[in-house]
Design a protein around this nucleic acid. Structure first.
Lengths: 223, 223
DNA sequence: GAAAATTTATGATTTACCTCAAATTTAGGT
DNA sequence: ACCTAAATTTGAGGTAAATCATAAATTTTC
């Protein structure tokens, strides 16, 4: 167990003292979530930080029935960091879109680590900033591009950042994809079909294969 | 000069050692910008962090001729923090929308402070996270609300967060406001006029007075 | 393994918003 | 003070995308 934690967190520490490791181990619980289960709810107390060890999580905001997926989180990343030193409230919900395994860590412990391990603090700032860059890209995609460009961006993101393959079983439903692209489900379906007919991607149900990255990039660029 | 710097940075440090203060003083230049001048350009090297001491700055992204204003920065805040431990490249441009005075600080110094002053590191993380919350709000406003809701959000933001008054001389041009709300200039103008006619705000050129916060909030809520 | 619920799919209609065009006002430069 | 450029304003027309309606296919539930 301790070995597993040590391994999962390895990328986050150059040097993790015995004391720090044991503090993590003692103030953490390991949890499993099924597809569709909710990990945290927008507005709830952010007393803990989630570390995704296995699976896939969607982080989303709720507003008048409609959801917007802010980020798809893959293993090795934290969820809830943005609540640290903030309001202590989750400003988004998180749900599992696959069977997922997480460590839930007391926020106080993460703060302790930030104070006592400057290497960790730097890496946390690095991750926060990487997320921010990603949010900027999403803001541009969502606000400046039309449907085709947004779907192209989503497919490129899924293929390159999330699944790291040109062929993948996209666990997102059509509705999730629409919520990720800020459009209606019908529009997402229509454009996916268009892309399939135009041989930009090959889609069979949830299975997706990217045929032409250049075309997707072009669609992303022209918006 | 040193006293001024000490005073400007006071909110960022509980305890700033002599050595740390002198490091800041030695590795900083004070700059003045006129209205319209550009402080940093998207894609440029992020070798320094900007601290806004006086004035008002817009941080924006450029994409195919069109700009989207990500954030209006007021005195006391840093610009460029999100480039730290990231790619070392500014992923946005920044321009002065009023006469502004800034300190330009070597990014390496900020990193040094993060490593050697955990209090500062915590506050930086706090600011980053506050920014992120703000970006989430903006993503929701820009993608889920229609024109009226977005303009209402912008006015509420300007009034409450930026100018902290119900009456203010909005230095943003109509185009800036449109770029902040992700809409065409014409639409921004039309809705502003509507709000004026409906006695929600009183607008005379750049001068703006909020008459009814409840109505603005209602518009923001319904989208 | 049937029933219920959700997801996917497609066509028709509506609308919110952009683009275009042209006039007027304001601001900047010499 | 004049000239030029930029910003503001208003109207008309076009369109991208949402909504509505309805059906088929898939998944979930008991």
């Amino acid at each position: 167990m301790i070995q597993q934690i040590q391994k999962d967190f390895a990328p986050w520490f150059d040097k993790l003292s015995e004391e720090q490791l044991s503090k993590i181990v003692e103030n953490q619980v390991s949890l499993n979530y099924n597809k569709g289960e909710i990990l945290s709810k927008q507005g709830g107390f952010a007393s803990h930080i989630i570390f995704l060890s296995d699976g896939l999580i969607k982080v989303y905001k709720e507003h008048n029935d409609k959801n917007l997926i802010l980020k798809i989180v893959k293993p090795g990343e934290f969820i809830g960091l943005s609540s640290l030193y903030n309001k202590g409230i989750f400003d988004y919900s998180a749900a599992s879109i696959d069977s997922s395994k997480v460590y839930s860590i007391q926020a106080e412990i993460v703060k302790y680590l930030i104070r006592n391990n400057s290497d960790f603090a730097e890496k946390i700032i690095g991750q926060l900033n990487q997320n921010t860059s990603q949010y900027f890209e999403r803001i541009m995609s969502l606000t400046q591009k039309q449907l085709h460009g947004r779907i192209a961006d989503a497919i490129l993101h899924l293929s390159r950042e999330i699944y790291e393959s040109d062929t993948f079983n996209m666990l997102l439903t059509r509705r999730d994809l629409a919520d990720f692209c800020g459009m209606s489900t019908e529009s997402a379906i229509r454009i996916l079909k268009e892309f399939h007919n135009d041989r930009i991607v090959n889609i069979d149900g949830k299975n997706m294969h990217v045929i032409s990255y250049p075309l997707l990039e072009r669609l992303s660029e022209v918006g």
